[in-house]
């Protein structure tokens, strides 16, 4: 991987991705500072303003219990982002380990692991997640775990491919001949060089996990009320579709903005981290 400074100098040439990175940072700050910036507590009920349209006192309106939608969305960002990051972290962790072992050792170990990956990828991911979450008790930790446990297969293929080429390189042979053990070679020598595609996949992974969590919560088998999440606010939006459009519009915009930002950062990161693409751009128009 190129040094961080080189990557940054390439990344910042893509203005769209830089703007997206700023949005990502602001969202993270808002989630951390939720109690400071939220106009109300996410549980506080305004009995005189049930399902009221956006107004000065409730800028994004209130829900069916008279709770402030903006406050619930700010607290909801904590849920969405933490599900996104933890689920992604689990997927990357498993994917890296499986991919590294398969790629490094090869042979029957590789065959067994990759056939297992084939089986995992035979199920449409969303179908598998639905089945597991609905059969278990839905809850935030279950959701994180299940999205993570069903999302590692693609990552393991990426990491395996990197290991297949890297393990033949001279620096690995040098480490081997100087007596380094397998684990040391895998984690100290090869893995740091194989991480570029993992970073890119991780950024897209956060976006994907947020989308999945919100759709599960929307279907009622995700984050359970009274805990606020963008998806379960949308779920009540569907119940009051004829009267309260603000319940449907704003949380969805928040999801779109967040997912879009992570995707754009991922795209910028991919271009910045890929030296082949960097050279190719000089010679060919695409």
């Amino acid at each position: 991987m190129s040094s961080a400074r080189v990557v940054w100098s390439r990344f910042k040439k893509n203005r769209l991705s830089v703007a997206a990175a700023i949005v990502v940072l602001l969202l993270a700050l808002a989630a951390i500072a939720a109690p400071l910036i939220s106009p109300y507590k996410y549980t506080s009920i305004d009995v005189n303003n049930v399902l009221s349209a956006p107004s000065l006192s409730h800028p994004l309106g209130t829900d069916e219990l008279g709770r402030d939608v903006l406050a619930r969305m700010i607290y909801g960002s904590r849920i969405s982002l933490s599900v996104g990051f933890v689920a992604m972290g689990i997927a990357m962790f498993i994917g890296v380990i499986i991919g590294a072992i398969a790629g490094y050792y090869g042979g029957w170990i590789d065959s067994v692991l990759m056939r297992f990956v084939d089986i995992m990828l035979s199920f449409p991911t969303y179908i598998l997640i639905l089945a597991i979450i609905a059969l278990l008790q839905p809850g935030i930790f279950i959701i994180m775990a299940v999205i993570g446990l069903t999302g590692w297969a693609d990552v393991s293929r990426l990491v395996r491919a990197e290991f297949l080429t890297l393990k033949e390189r001279d620096f690995v042979l040098a480490a081997k001949s100087s007596g380094a053990g397998n684990l040391r070679i895998i984690f100290r020598h090869i893995l740091p060089n194989a991480l570029s595609p993992v970073f890119v996949a991780a950024t897209f992974g956060v976006a994907g996990a947020i989308l999945i969590e919100s759709s599960l919560s929307f279907l009622g088998i995700g984050v359970q009320p009274p805990t606020p999440s963008w998806g379960n606010i949308l779920s009540s939006g569907k119940d009051y579709i004829e009267t309260a459009w603000w319940l449907s519009v704003f949380p969805g915009l928040a999801i779109l903005m967040t997912v879009l930002s992570y995707n754009l950062v991922g795209e910028g990161l991919r271009d910045a981290l890929d030296p082949r693409l960097w050279q190719a751009e000089r010679t060919s128009p695409d």
């Binding site: 976006a207 989308l211 759709s215 949308l234 569907k238 579709i241 999801i255 779109l256 879009l260 995707n263």
Partner: peptide
């Protein structure tokens, strides 16, 4: 990118 990032169920709503 916007198309990729739009939650289908929200668009439906």
């Amino acid at each position: 990118f916007v198309g990729y990032s739009t939650p289908t169920f929200w668009l439906a709503l």
